[in-house]
């Protein structure tokens, strides 16, 4: 899957599943500080990533993600790695 496709799919997930405003979503946006996604929201996001991209994200790797770009990186690495 192309990186742009992952980005676009992730953006849709953030809008549809977490109810985040589309305009706020940028690659360097921090989940907690910029997008107001709390710790429960991060769990929800990881579940959505696993379901929608068919990848498995262990907790220790999930804890490293703080920005939208990093989430894309992780999914990309899982899919292509």
């Amino acid at each position: 899957m192309e990186r742009t496709e992952i980005e676009s799919k992730l953006t849709d997930l953030l809008v549809d599943e977490l109810g985040i405003e589309r305009d706020d979503i940028r690659s360097d946006a921090k989940f907690e500080e910029d997008l107001d996604v709390d710790s429960l929201g991060v769990v929800e996001l990881l579940m959505a990533l696993e379901d929608n991209f068919g990848v498995k994200i262990p907790d220790e790797e999930a804890e490293q993600i703080t920005t939208v770009g990093e989430a894309v990186d992780l999914v990309e690495a899982k899919l292509n790695g």
Partner: peptide, 8 residues
Amino acid sequence: GPHRLSPF
């Protein structure tokens, strides 16, 4: 399974 229970 339990891994798909919602945090909410």
